[in-house]
Design a protein around this nucleic acid. Structure first.
Lengths: 135, 135
DNA sequence: GCAGAACTTAGAATCATTCTAAACTGCTTG
DNA sequence: CAAGCAGTTTAGAATGATTCTAAGTTCTGC
């Protein structure tokens, strides 16, 4: 067995989070294989399948903490439907309205020009572009 | 009394909606004065203040119908928070994350170049740009 | 090892939204 | 204009997602 398996505990510690059994399990699923889009429910199901006991509330807690720590980005596409994206770099989204699928696309080629300056007293947080398509 | 007061009943009928007492009351508040951003709750409060009895469920129904009829546009900015915008023309949004305010800005000057083509089998519905800022 | 803080948990609570079933109302026709 | 009926409204229950609570559990530093 064994190649280099990432040290999730260390990753969490760097983010200021205590590496508990369930946070490590969640991190493993989230960051173990390419970029992902998950909901609390879907992630909960996946982690339970690894036979590590995790309460749904813990998944919510962890997702919020990971997001606050910059490990995840939250994408809100439809009312009552919030995805967490493991890709925290610059990129935008396709959202297939008819079946709720979300896909990344890189922002390399995309240029947005002519945005007005933010209202005074505010500073830019980020610009979300969601390309909505339907089947 | 009286200047030219818009005929909301006719407007609703054109949209294929029966002009009932409460739909007319809602339309009056929504379309009576410039562009607006409302939530079901905020609109409900406003209409009740005009002394026309409306149930919250009716406000939800009407907002959904108005949206489907193209009289409104729905903007999803944060989980569990959905706004309806009376401006259905091309424009984008500022969202002040720290206090939940939403502001329009015209898309005249804004150009988005380099968007990839939609996944095959899908057709473009619309492109949302949300500029998130914080105080 | 141990204390204490941080974390997890089951289940209750909350919030926004939708559903249900019954009462009502606008519209069409006679 | 009376009748009838489909389309609407309504209060309240139901749902679904998320958060809170209070109590038990587990990390971490000493």
């Amino acid at each position: 067995m064994s190649g280099t398996s990432p040290d999730y505990a260390a990753r969490l510690r760097e983010a200021g989070l205590r590496p508990t059994r369930q946070r490590v399990a969640l991190a493993r699923v989230l960051f173990g294989a390419g970029h992902r889009h998950v909901t609390a429910e879907s992630l909960h199901a996946e982690v339970k399948a690894t036979r590590i006991p995790v309460a749904l509330a813990t998944v919510y807690n962890a997702l919020n903490q990971f997001r606050d720590a910059g490990l995840l980005r939250e994408v809100v596409v439809a009312p009552g439907r919030s995805y967490f994206d493991t890709n925290t770099g610059h990129h935008h989204h396709f959202f297939v309205e008819t079946d709720g699928e979300l896909h990344d696309f890189p922002s390399d080629k995309v240029t947005i020009a002519g945005l007005p300056t933010p209202p005074k007293g505010t500073k830019l947080s980020r610009v979300d572009v969601i390309v909505r398509v339907r089947r």
